[in-house]
């Protein structure tokens, strides 16, 4: 089976007054139908820009410099404005971090949901309302038939995020890109949404790219993980394998940084330093200045090597038993 989404060599840059910012560089991965893929990295790693690039949501001074994004074999990079508009929402939808910023505060949720349907399909008002109620039920909003007349401010944060997810589901897209959808929520509400999203993906066969900085959250929804650092994909593979035997020193460092690995009260194994500026990346491996295993060869850039289900961008990968 060929993949639903095929990203290869994606490179997105922003021209700023200070110089060219390499937000995403040579990123390649695939997503199968119905699969949930976690895209993990710290702030500035390029994970959100990757999501925006897939949807063609990069505005000047940003530009997709090279690479290709194929959905069901159709190239999306270079499509004109109208073609992109008709693709967004219908084939690939997006859920953002902050639902109070993505919903229109002066429209009832029913009205903005009907707009989202009308953008792609001619439906009678009755049929549109029925569809809205149906998806609101799907995401677990009680009393949906009455709630579509409510305004966003009448919902709590968790319920608002459910509405945002419902809007993403409206046109039955094949892929939903979720950009930190639970980061702004409390843990108890996050647990509700995570449970809901997993069962949605299984029931509807919708594929998802789950962008997050939180390894634990990703590990509880995704089956595969992509780790990004400074705009580059540095490790990928089945989630349990990668977390059990990380082969890139950065992935290992990220895992060791989590409280809960070390004994309470003991020092955490920290990664020294901070992420380099994307305008002035060090030559070679971007992680090299912070890496405890770096050697002279690291001054040349490592290529992404694939063995079996796992991908890696490192000259000196950690041995299987290097935990």
């Amino acid at each position: 089976m060929s993949a639903l989404l095929e990203v290869s060599g994606l490179t997105t840059r922003f021209s700023t007054r200070a110089g060219v910012l390499n937000a995403v560089e040579d990123v390649s991965f695939t997503v199968d139908a119905g699969e949930i893929v976690g895209l993990v990295g710290e702030s500035g790693s390029g994970k959100s820009v990757t999501g925006f690039s897939i949807l063609g949501l990069i505005d000047p001074p940003g530009r997709i410099v090279s690479g290709s994004v194929k959905l069901d074999g159709r190239e999306l990079v270079g499509l004109d404005h109208g073609a992109l508009r008709s693709m967004r929402g219908r084939e690939i939808a997006m859920v953002f971090q902050d639902p109070s910023a993505t919903l229109n505060p002066v429209l009832t949720i029913g009205a903005q949901m009907q707009l989202a349907i009308a953008a792609h399909e001619k439906l009678s008002e009755q049929a549109a309302v029925a569809r809205c109620v149906e998806v609101l039920n799907t995401v677990g909003i009680p009393d949906a038939a009455a709630r579509i007349r409510a305004y966003p401010h009448q919902f709590s944060g968790g319920m608002r995020q459910r509405v945002a997810i419902a809007i993403a589901l409206l046109n039955r897209p094949k892929l939903i890109i979720c950009d930190e959808p639970t980061t702004a929520l409390d843990v108890s509400i996050q647990a509700q949404i995570l449970t809901e999203m997993k069962s949605l993906a299984a029931r509807l066969g919708t594929a998802m790219i789950w962008i997050s900085h939180d390894l634990a959250t990703v590990s509880s929804v995704a089956s595969r993980i992509l780790v990004m650092y400074a705009g580059r994909l540095i490790e990928s593979g089945p989630i349990a394998d990668v977390l059990r035997t990380p082969r890139h020193p950065y992935t290992l460092g990220l895992l060791n940084s989590l409280p809960g690995i070390a004994e309470p009260g003991q020092d955490l194994v920290q990664i020294r330093g901070a992420m380099p500026s994307l305008i002035a990346l060090p030559p070679g491996c971007a992680f090299q200045p912070r890496c405890g295993f770096a050697r002279a060869e690291c001054a040349t850039r490592p290529e992404l090597t694939v063995s079996g289900a796992r991908g890696l961008r490192c000259h000196f990968p950690l041995a299987e038993a290097a935990e």
Partner: peptide, 25 residues
């Protein structure tokens, strides 16, 4: 609250289930 916290899953056969708190604050 403790049951709601996502845990790092490192076994491929581990099934992640939350027991979310019903309702909201």
């Amino acid at each position: 609250l403790l049951d709601s916290v996502p845990k790092l899953v490192t076994g491929s056969d581990e099934l992640v289930t939350f027991k979310p708190i019903q309702g909201e604050l």
